[in-house]
Design a binder for these strands. Structure first.
Lengths: 115, 115
DNA sequence: CAGTATCCCCAGAGATACTG
DNA sequence: CAGTATCTCTGGGGATACTG
Protein backbone atom coordinates (compact mmCIF):
# COMPACT_ATOMS: atom_id res chain seq x y z
CA UNK A 1 0.00 0.00 0.00
CA UNK A 2 1.47 3.31 -1.07
CA UNK A 3 0.74 6.39 0.98
CA UNK A 4 0.66 9.91 -0.45
CA UNK A 5 -0.26 13.17 1.18
CA UNK A 6 -1.42 15.09 -1.87
CA UNK A 7 -1.78 14.60 -5.60
CA UNK A 8 1.47 16.44 -6.19
CA UNK A 9 3.34 13.69 -4.40
CA UNK A 10 1.93 11.16 -6.83
CA UNK A 11 3.03 13.18 -9.81
CA UNK A 12 6.51 13.70 -8.42
CA UNK A 13 6.76 10.01 -7.64
CA UNK A 14 6.26 9.25 -11.33
CA UNK A 15 8.06 12.06 -13.13
CA UNK A 16 10.32 13.47 -10.41
CA UNK A 17 13.93 12.56 -9.87
CA UNK A 18 17.11 13.60 -11.55
CA UNK A 19 16.57 12.39 -15.12
CA UNK A 20 12.94 11.47 -15.73
CA UNK A 21 11.75 14.92 -16.72
CA UNK A 22 14.40 15.48 -19.33
CA UNK A 23 14.14 12.02 -20.86
CA UNK A 24 10.37 12.33 -21.08
CA UNK A 25 10.74 15.76 -22.62
CA UNK A 26 12.66 14.31 -25.54
CA UNK A 27 10.59 11.14 -25.95
CA UNK A 28 7.39 13.17 -25.97
CA UNK A 29 8.67 15.12 -28.98
CA UNK A 30 9.05 11.96 -31.05
CA UNK A 31 10.20 8.34 -30.72
CA UNK A 32 13.86 8.23 -29.74
CA UNK A 33 16.60 5.66 -29.98
CA UNK A 34 18.81 4.87 -27.00
CA UNK A 35 21.94 6.46 -28.40
CA UNK A 36 19.98 9.52 -29.42
CA UNK A 37 18.79 10.02 -25.86
CA UNK A 38 22.28 9.49 -24.55
CA UNK A 39 23.44 12.31 -26.77
CA UNK A 40 20.53 14.62 -25.99
CA UNK A 41 20.43 14.20 -22.24
CA UNK A 42 23.68 15.83 -21.38
CA UNK A 43 25.95 14.08 -18.88
CA UNK A 44 23.72 11.08 -18.30
CA UNK A 45 25.50 7.76 -18.01
CA UNK A 46 24.49 4.63 -19.89
CA UNK A 47 23.53 3.09 -16.58
CA UNK A 48 21.22 5.87 -15.45
CA UNK A 49 19.69 6.20 -18.90
CA UNK A 50 18.69 2.55 -19.09
CA UNK A 51 17.62 2.46 -15.47
CA UNK A 52 15.41 5.52 -15.83
CA UNK A 53 13.91 4.26 -19.08
CA UNK A 54 12.97 1.00 -17.30
CA UNK A 55 11.23 2.94 -14.56
CA UNK A 56 9.29 5.06 -17.00
CA UNK A 57 8.30 1.91 -18.85
CA UNK A 58 7.25 0.16 -15.64
CA UNK A 59 5.10 3.16 -14.75
CA UNK A 60 3.40 3.00 -18.12
CA UNK A 61 4.66 6.30 -19.51
CA UNK A 62 6.78 5.01 -22.36
CA UNK A 63 6.89 2.00 -24.61
CA UNK A 64 9.97 0.10 -25.67
CA UNK A 65 10.03 -1.26 -29.19
CA UNK A 66 12.83 -3.58 -30.12
CA UNK A 67 13.77 -4.34 -33.69
CA UNK A 68 15.31 -7.76 -34.14
CA UNK A 69 18.23 -6.87 -36.32
CA UNK A 70 21.98 -6.52 -36.25
CA UNK A 71 23.12 -4.09 -35.05
CA UNK A 72 20.30 -3.88 -32.51
CA UNK A 73 17.83 -1.05 -32.70
CA UNK A 74 15.50 0.04 -29.93
CA UNK A 75 13.03 2.86 -30.02
CA UNK A 76 11.25 4.47 -27.10
CA UNK A 77 7.96 6.23 -27.58
CA UNK A 78 5.30 7.57 -25.25
CA UNK A 79 2.21 5.70 -24.26
CA UNK A 80 -1.07 7.57 -24.25
CA UNK A 81 -0.50 8.26 -20.56
CA UNK A 82 2.98 9.61 -21.22
CA UNK A 83 1.86 11.72 -24.13
CA UNK A 84 -0.82 13.29 -21.95
CA UNK A 85 2.00 15.19 -20.28
CA UNK A 86 2.82 17.00 -23.49
CA UNK A 87 0.75 20.18 -22.89
CA UNK A 88 2.08 20.44 -19.34
CA UNK A 89 5.67 20.02 -20.47
CA UNK A 90 5.13 22.68 -23.07
CA UNK A 91 3.98 25.06 -20.34
CA UNK A 92 6.98 24.13 -18.21
CA UNK A 93 9.31 24.96 -21.09
CA UNK A 94 7.62 28.26 -21.73
CA UNK A 95 7.91 29.03 -18.06
CA UNK A 96 11.62 28.24 -18.13
CA UNK A 97 12.17 30.46 -21.16
CA UNK A 98 10.35 33.29 -19.43
CA UNK A 99 12.33 32.69 -16.26
CA UNK A 100 15.59 32.95 -18.18
CA UNK A 101 14.42 36.24 -19.68
CA UNK A 102 13.58 37.70 -16.32
CA UNK A 103 16.39 36.34 -14.20
CA UNK A 104 19.46 36.10 -16.41
CA UNK A 105 21.43 38.81 -18.12
CA UNK A 106 22.02 37.95 -21.80
CA UNK A 107 25.70 37.28 -21.18
CA UNK A 108 25.10 35.03 -18.19
CA UNK A 109 23.27 32.27 -19.99
CA UNK A 110 23.52 30.30 -23.19
CA UNK A 111 21.01 27.84 -24.54
CA UNK A 112 22.52 25.34 -26.93
CA UNK A 113 19.68 23.66 -28.76
CA UNK A 114 20.74 20.24 -29.99
CA UNK A 115 18.98 18.38 -32.73
CA UNK B 1 28.06 31.61 -17.73
CA UNK B 2 25.44 28.91 -17.38
CA UNK B 3 24.87 26.50 -20.23
CA UNK B 4 21.56 24.80 -20.95
CA UNK B 5 20.53 22.57 -23.82
CA UNK B 6 16.82 23.26 -23.84
CA UNK B 7 14.25 25.32 -21.93
CA UNK B 8 13.26 22.27 -19.93
CA UNK B 9 16.70 22.19 -18.36
CA UNK B 10 16.21 25.74 -17.13
CA UNK B 11 12.88 24.88 -15.54
CA UNK B 12 14.27 21.78 -13.88
CA UNK B 13 17.23 23.76 -12.63
CA UNK B 14 14.86 26.04 -10.75
CA UNK B 15 12.05 23.77 -9.59
CA UNK B 16 13.63 20.31 -9.91
CA UNK B 17 15.31 18.41 -7.13
CA UNK B 18 13.98 16.37 -4.28
CA UNK B 19 11.94 18.93 -2.33
CA UNK B 20 11.38 22.12 -4.34
CA UNK B 21 8.24 20.98 -6.10
CA UNK B 22 6.42 19.97 -2.95
CA UNK B 23 7.43 23.03 -0.96
CA UNK B 24 6.36 25.31 -3.77
CA UNK B 25 3.10 23.44 -4.05
CA UNK B 26 2.20 24.34 -0.48
CA UNK B 27 3.51 27.90 -0.55
CA UNK B 28 1.61 28.61 -3.75
CA UNK B 29 -1.64 27.72 -1.99
CA UNK B 30 -1.09 30.39 0.66
CA UNK B 31 1.66 31.91 2.82
CA UNK B 32 3.17 29.26 5.06
CA UNK B 33 5.15 29.31 8.27
CA UNK B 34 8.29 27.23 8.66
CA UNK B 35 6.83 24.75 11.10
CA UNK B 36 3.75 24.39 8.96
CA UNK B 37 5.86 23.40 5.97
CA UNK B 38 7.81 21.00 8.10
CA UNK B 39 4.58 19.27 9.00
CA UNK B 40 3.15 19.32 5.49
CA UNK B 41 6.20 18.16 3.60
CA UNK B 42 6.40 14.66 4.93
CA UNK B 43 9.82 13.37 5.99
CA UNK B 44 11.74 16.52 5.21
CA UNK B 45 14.43 17.45 7.72
CA UNK B 46 14.86 20.90 9.21
CA UNK B 47 18.11 21.21 7.34
CA UNK B 48 16.73 20.41 3.91
CA UNK B 49 13.66 22.54 4.48
CA UNK B 50 15.65 25.66 5.31
CA UNK B 51 18.21 24.96 2.61
CA UNK B 52 15.57 24.51 -0.07
CA UNK B 53 13.67 27.60 1.05
CA UNK B 54 16.88 29.61 0.71
CA UNK B 55 17.38 28.35 -2.83
CA UNK B 56 13.83 29.18 -3.82
CA UNK B 57 14.27 32.61 -2.32
CA UNK B 58 17.59 33.17 -4.12
CA UNK B 59 15.94 32.18 -7.39
CA UNK B 60 13.19 34.72 -6.83
CA UNK B 61 10.30 32.30 -6.45
CA UNK B 62 9.40 32.94 -2.85
CA UNK B 63 9.65 35.76 -0.38
CA UNK B 64 10.65 35.47 3.25
CA UNK B 65 8.91 37.74 5.70
CA UNK B 66 10.22 37.85 9.22
CA UNK B 67 8.21 39.18 12.13
CA UNK B 68 10.34 40.63 14.89
CA UNK B 69 8.69 39.07 17.86
CA UNK B 70 9.21 36.42 20.48
CA UNK B 71 8.78 33.63 19.74
CA UNK B 72 10.02 34.25 16.21
CA UNK B 73 7.62 34.03 13.31
CA UNK B 74 8.56 33.69 9.67
CA UNK B 75 6.23 33.45 6.74
CA UNK B 76 7.03 32.36 3.22
CA UNK B 77 4.94 33.48 0.30
CA UNK B 78 5.32 33.34 -3.46
CA UNK B 79 6.67 36.15 -5.55
CA UNK B 80 4.87 36.98 -8.75
CA UNK B 81 7.30 34.69 -10.54
CA UNK B 82 6.59 31.87 -8.14
CA UNK B 83 2.87 32.34 -8.29
CA UNK B 84 3.02 32.14 -12.07
CA UNK B 85 3.58 28.42 -11.60
CA UNK B 86 0.16 27.98 -10.02
CA UNK B 87 -1.78 26.97 -13.14
CA UNK B 88 0.97 24.52 -14.11
CA UNK B 89 1.06 22.97 -10.68
CA UNK B 90 -2.69 22.58 -10.77
CA UNK B 91 -2.35 20.65 -14.02
CA UNK B 92 0.40 18.52 -12.54
CA UNK B 93 -1.85 17.63 -9.60
CA UNK B 94 -4.75 16.76 -11.86
CA UNK B 95 -2.42 14.60 -13.87
CA UNK B 96 -1.27 12.81 -10.73
CA UNK B 97 -4.84 12.21 -9.63
CA UNK B 98 -5.69 10.80 -13.02
CA UNK B 99 -2.55 8.67 -12.98
CA UNK B 100 -3.57 7.21 -9.63
CA UNK B 101 -6.99 6.37 -11.02
CA UNK B 102 -5.55 4.60 -14.02
CA UNK B 103 -2.57 2.86 -12.48
CA UNK B 104 -3.51 1.96 -8.92
CA UNK B 105 -6.14 -0.40 -7.66
CA UNK B 106 -8.23 1.24 -4.93
CA UNK B 107 -6.63 -0.88 -2.20
CA UNK B 108 -3.08 -0.22 -3.34
CA UNK B 109 -3.02 3.50 -2.65
CA UNK B 110 -4.14 5.92 0.00
CA UNK B 111 -4.08 9.68 -0.17
CA UNK B 112 -3.99 11.32 3.23
CA UNK B 113 -4.82 14.96 2.72
CA UNK B 114 -3.39 17.06 5.52
CA UNK B 115 -4.63 20.48 6.40
C1' DC C 1 9.82 28.85 16.89
C1' DA C 2 13.27 29.43 13.40
C1' DG C 3 17.65 28.65 12.23
C1' DT C 4 22.77 27.15 12.43
C1' DA C 5 26.55 23.93 13.02
C1' DT C 6 28.48 19.25 12.96
C1' DC C 7 29.16 14.78 12.19
C1' DC C 8 28.45 11.01 9.38
C1' DC C 9 26.43 7.63 6.37
C1' DC C 10 24.77 5.24 2.49
C1' DA C 11 22.07 5.09 -1.66
C1' DG C 12 22.38 7.03 -5.94
C1' DA C 13 25.20 7.79 -9.40
C1' DG C 14 29.87 7.54 -12.05
C1' DA C 15 33.43 4.63 -14.31
C1' DT C 16 34.91 0.67 -16.52
C1' DA C 17 34.72 -3.64 -18.69
C1' DC C 18 32.21 -7.00 -20.95
C1' DT C 19 28.32 -9.51 -23.94
C1' DG C 20 24.95 -10.60 -27.68
C1' DC D 1 24.19 -0.48 -30.88
C1' DA D 2 21.89 -1.67 -26.68
C1' DG D 3 22.33 -3.51 -22.50
C1' DT D 4 24.38 -5.88 -18.19
C1' DA D 5 27.55 -6.47 -14.36
C1' DT D 6 30.75 -4.67 -10.88
C1' DC D 7 33.18 -1.78 -8.29
C1' DT D 8 33.79 2.47 -6.40
C1' DC D 9 32.86 6.74 -4.45
C1' DT D 10 30.99 11.13 -3.23
C1' DG D 11 28.00 14.56 -1.80
C1' DG D 12 23.20 14.95 -0.81
C1' DG D 13 20.88 14.46 2.87
C1' DG D 14 19.77 12.50 7.78
C1' DA D 15 20.51 12.88 12.88
C1' DT D 16 21.68 15.44 16.68
C1' DA D 17 22.76 19.21 19.52
C1' DC D 18 22.82 23.94 20.17
C1' DT D 19 21.56 29.30 19.88
C1' DG D 20 18.86 33.65 19.74
Amino acid sequence: MRIFHCEMEITLDVIGGKWKGLILYYVIQKPRRTGELKRLVHNISQKMLVQTLRELEADGLIHRKMYNQVPPKVEYSTTELGQSLEPIFKLLCNWGANYADESYAPDEIEILHLK
